[in-house]
């Protein structure tokens, strides 16, 4: 029970931090407008607070990831560290009003299944190395 709660909190923290990072990145880049290779573009990005949200999210993810890896099997941990894609998609649809074309939704599903396959492979590999 204790272990289950640890995993739940750890995986949720990791996904939330990763999602915070990506949302902060998007809000920061929105502030600068379309990318132009000019110092002004970088200054406009780094002069507003969202960029620090991204840094904070990175740090949070790092701490959550390192804590999780100490106890959690690497497969599910790997999946959780990449399945933030799902949460980011939901948030970007609700908050930014992003809409994906039907074929892009199919692509997103394939990517998510692909990540799950990779995490099964990671878990299997760890089992092989441990035995």
């Amino acid at each position: 029970m204790k272990k289950t709660r640890f995993y739940m909190i750890g995986f949720s923290a990791l996904m939330l931090c990763d999602t915070l990072t990506q949302i902060s990145f998007k809000l920061a880049s929105n502030h600068g407008g379309d990318f132009v290779m000019h110092l002004d573009w970088f200054l406009s990005i780094f002069s507003q607070p969202w960029i620090y949200g991204a840094v904070l999210g990175y740090l949070g993810s790092f701490v959550a990831w390192m804590t999780l890896l100490k106890h959690a099997p690497v497969g599910p941990a790997f999946a959780a560290s990449h399945l933030e894609v799902v949460l980011v998609l939901v948030v970007s649809a609700v908050y930014f009003g992003d809409r994906l074309a039907p074929m892009q939704i199919v692509g997103a599903l394939l990517i998510v299944i692909g990540i799950i396959c990779l995490s099964f492979s990671e878990a299997e590999q760890e089992n092989v190395e441990n035995h």
Partner: peptide, 12 residues
């Protein structure tokens, strides 16, 4: 990258 694409497309 995120300045020229939507967040959902970017992460995918």
């Amino acid at each position: 990258f995120l300045s020229v694409l939507s967040l959902s497309q970017g992460v995918l």
